[in-house]
Structures are given as C-alpha cells and as structure tokens.
C-alpha cells in the first residue's frame, strides 16, 4: 500500500539516501500520478542528489498538476546559470526569506550589486545564518566595501 511506500521514502530521506528516495517517489507516482508529496520529494531528492539536470524535466512534467514548483524551478535554473529565466520563475512568488535570498544570489551573478545588496539589507532583521557573508560579498563587489 501507498503508506508503506511513504514509510520507506521517509526512511531514505532521513538517511540522506536521495537516489533511493527518487526511486520510491517514482513508485508512489506510478500508483498515484500527481501526488503532491511524492512529486515534491522527488524534486527535492534530485536537487539534494545534485542531479539538477533531472530535477528540471521533472518540474516541467509536473506542470499539468496544480503544484507550485516555481521556487524549485528558479533554484535549478540558477544552478544552471540560466539567470534571466530563474528571475522570471521567481516573479510569481511572494517575498519571503527563501525567494529573497535566491533573488539576491541571482542578482549577484548578474552583476546587479546594488539590487543584490538592497535585498540583503531588507533580510537583516530575519536573522539568517551566514547572511553577512553574502552581504559583504555584495558590498565589496558593488565597490562599497567601506560600508
């Protein structure tokens, strides 16, 4: 039954066995196509297995289901240095620490340092670990090291 598959999936996730997690997620999806939890697990496991090249087509193939994968899509595009498209995928997303961090990392790679630094400034009150490392990188690259 599907509950046993999810138990197995959960165990693989806990053990960071991401490739096996993908296989079990696929088993769930063969029984229950479009199952949101299984789809999310598959995409996240592919990303954590550093298999971005398979994560993106999985995301594309999910477009017929009502699941919002735009953050994951933007992240994968960013990892592939497809920066304009990555920004495009973030447009539909509400501002939260995740989307703001990703956007600032994309802007950094695009060389849009002032916009990048602006976001880190806004995120300062969110108490994100190691945020200052990227903030400082943005300031230095913007020629604003004195700040």
């Amino acid at each position: 039954p599907i509950e046993d598959l999810f138990t197995s999936l959960n165990r693989h996730i806990e053990r960071s066995e991401f490739q096996q997690a993908v296989k079990v997620a696929d088993q769930v999806l063969s029984i229950a196509p479009g199952d949101e939890d299984a789809m999310r697990c598959k995409v996240v496991a592919l990303i954590k297995a550093d298999n971005i090249d398979d994560a993106l087509p999985t995301i594309q193939s999910s477009q017929k289901f009502p699941i919002d994968f735009n953050y994951f899509k933007a992240y994968c595009l960013y990892r592939q240095n497809n920066l304009e498209e990555a920004l495009e995928s973030l447009k539909s997303q509400e501002n939260n620490p995740a989307t703001m961090l990703l956007k600032s990392q994309i802007l950094y790679r695009l060389g849009e340092m002032d916009a990048c630094v602006d976001i880190y400034q806004k995120l300062q009150k969110s108490k994100i670990d190691s945020l200052e490392i990227n903030f400082v990188a943005g300031l230095i690259s913007a020629g604003r090291a004195s700040e």
């Binding site: 999810f6 620490p97 994100i128 190691s130 490392i133």
Partner: peptide, 21 residues
C-alpha cells in the same frame, strides 16, 4: 572574488510525510 554562499539551498526542503505513513 569574495566568497558567496548558496543560502537559498537551505530552503529546499522535503514535505512532512507524517500523515502519509
């Protein structure tokens, strides 16, 4: 070049499967 961390990666999370098992 200054070091930039991939902080966005920390927000790629598995859903809770608590009520699916």
């Amino acid at each position: 070049n200054p070091i930039v961390l991939d902080l966005a990666y920390n927000y790629i999370d598995f859903p809770s499967l608590e009520n699916r098992m």
